[in-house]
């Protein structure tokens, strides 16, 4: 799994979390995180505002639950 494969994955889905990507590549979310951040810094991956958290608890890593969407326009 590398930057290009991750780009292709995001281009193929409407939106996804780091966990979704990790699940797709059968790896750990922490290993995906840096690649996702790389595309985010490049301005091609946008954070989506979603309300889909299960509630108020803070037990899960919210960075991993953040939804991203591929964008062709660089900010």
């Amino acid at each position: 799994m590398n930057l290009i494969q991750i780009k292709k994955y995001f281009q193929s889905v409407p939106m996804a979390t780091t966990i979704d990507v990790a699940e797709h590549f059968k790896t750990q979310p922490v290993e995906i995180k840096c690649y996702v951040e790389h595309w985010e810094h490049k301005g091609l991956l946008k954070k989506c505002i979603t309300k889909n958290k299960c509630g108020s608890c803070s037990l899960c890593d919210f960075d991993l639950l953040q939804h991203y969407k591929w964008s062709t326009k660089v900010a």
């Binding site: 939106m15 979704d20 979603t50």
Partner: peptide, 22 residues
């Protein structure tokens, strides 16, 4: 099951949460 779980609170965000499905 995740959107269904959110549906116990309100169905509207639960429907939005279905976007996470592949």
């Amino acid at each position: 099951f995740i959107p269904l779980l959110i549906g116990f609170s309100c169905n509207v965000p639960a429907i939005i949460a279905t976007r996470t499905l592949e």
